[in-house]
Amino acid sequence: MFYIKKKHKKVPIEDPIYTTCPMCGVEHEVDLTDVLTTGGDLYGTQVYCHRCSVERAKQHKGQEWAKQIIREGV
């Protein structure tokens, strides 16, 4: 179990969990299970919002890859 400490008390981390997109700064929900099972960690992982994920896919992998992301709803 992961938890944070607030005023010397353990506070469980419960859904929904939010993060900030490192590209546009929008706050969005993130699934910690997905982050941790794909090799991420709680300290160094950044999760892009859906819009920025599509834009990055276009830039790095091309239009067809971005279309696949949109279809899968990643």
Score class of each variant (00 low, 15 high):
I13C: 04
I13V: 14
I13N: 00
E14I: 14
P16K: 06
Y18K: 15
T19N: 11
T19A: 11
T19I: 09
T20D: 07
C24M: 03
C24E: 04
G25C: 10
G25A: 05
V26F: 08
E27I: 15
H28T: 02
H28F: 01
E29P: 04
E29W: 12
V30D: 02
V30Q: 04
D31H: 09
L32I: 03
T33V: 15
T33Y: 15
T33E: 15
T33C: 11
D34Q: 12
D34T: 12
V35T: 06
L36P: 10
L36K: 09
T37Q: 14
T38E: 08
G40Q: 07
D41K: 11
D41W: 01
L42Q: 10
L42D: 13
Y43T: 09
G44M: 09
G44F: 07
T45A: 11
V47T: 07
V47S: 10
V47H: 03
Y48E: 06
Y48D: 03
C49K: 05
H50C: 02
R51N: 11
R51G: 06
R51D: 14
R51T: 04
R51F: 07
S53N: 06
S53C: 00
V54K: 01
E55T: 08
E55G: 07
E55V: 08
A57W: 01
A57M: 09
K58V: 07
K58C: 05
Q59H: 05
Q59I: 09
H60P: 06
H60S: 11
H60Q: 12
H60T: 08
H60I: 14
H60D: 08
K61D: 08
K61N: 13
G62C: 04
G62L: 03
E64R: 10
E64I: 01
W65K: 13
K67Y: 02
K67N: 13
K67F: 01
Q68E: 12
Q68C: 09
